[in-house]
């Protein structure tokens, strides 16, 4: 990514909206921030924008708290922006874990709206799920239904069914053998 030349930091509960080819957010102190182009969300509570300074685009970071749910709901902050798929996925994971609560029912767990939305992301979700699965190490979560639905594969041998640590290893090995990169 090109160099970052400015940082705006504030508390903003309001959505980031696109108005007349400008990106606008108003913070909790009524301070208004305006940007030229949304480059993409990055990890944490940050959005990368460009700002026009003497006809030149300068990249910077808007650091806020609380605006992410609004930003996600805003169609202008769309998935095609760089980093968008990982951003949306991480939001959906958080929603899914909240939505499923303390149920033990796999049927209920995979029928959560957010989990279905992850499957709905299609093939581009596969490497993101694999990266998530790998990052969870010895305590992997229930990504196997989504992986089966998306790839139509089942690399888990019968004796390992239900053992998520072994199942995660089987999926990561299968994915590597089948040309997935994550």
């Amino acid at each position: 990514m090109p160099s970052i030349s400015w940082v705006d930091q504030c508390r903003a509960e309001a959505p980031v909206v696109q108005l007349d080819h400008r990106w606008v957010v108003t913070d909790d102190q009524e301070q208004r921030y305006e940007y030229a182009e949304l480059v993409g969300p990055v990890q944490g509570h940050r959005l990368v924008f460009s700002r026009l300074v003497e006809q030149q685009h300068e990249l910077g970071v808007f650091v806020g708290t609380g605006f992410f749910a609004c930003a996600l709901a805003s169609p202008e902050v769309s998935l095609e922006h760089r980093g968008g798929d990982e951003f949306v996925f991480s939001r959906l994971v958080a929603e899914w874990r909240k939505e499923r609560g303390a149920t033990s029912s796999t049927s209920d767990i995979v029928l959560c709206y957010a989990y279905q939305a992850i499957i709905g992301m299609g093939q581009k979700a596969v490497p993101i799920i694999l990266a998530q699965l790998e990052s969870e190490g010895d305590n992997p979560d229930q990504w196997f239904w989504a992986l089966q639905a998306l790839t139509r594969a089942n690399p888990v041998v019968e004796e390992d069914e239900g053992n998520y640590r072994k199942m995660a290893r089987a999926w990561l090995n299968w994915a590597a053998r089948n040309g997935y990169a994550w």
Partner: peptide, 14 residues
Amino acid sequence: RWWWPIPVRGINYW
């Protein structure tokens, strides 16, 4: 292991 009786194989133990 996670036990639950879903019909799809490769997900849970039953």
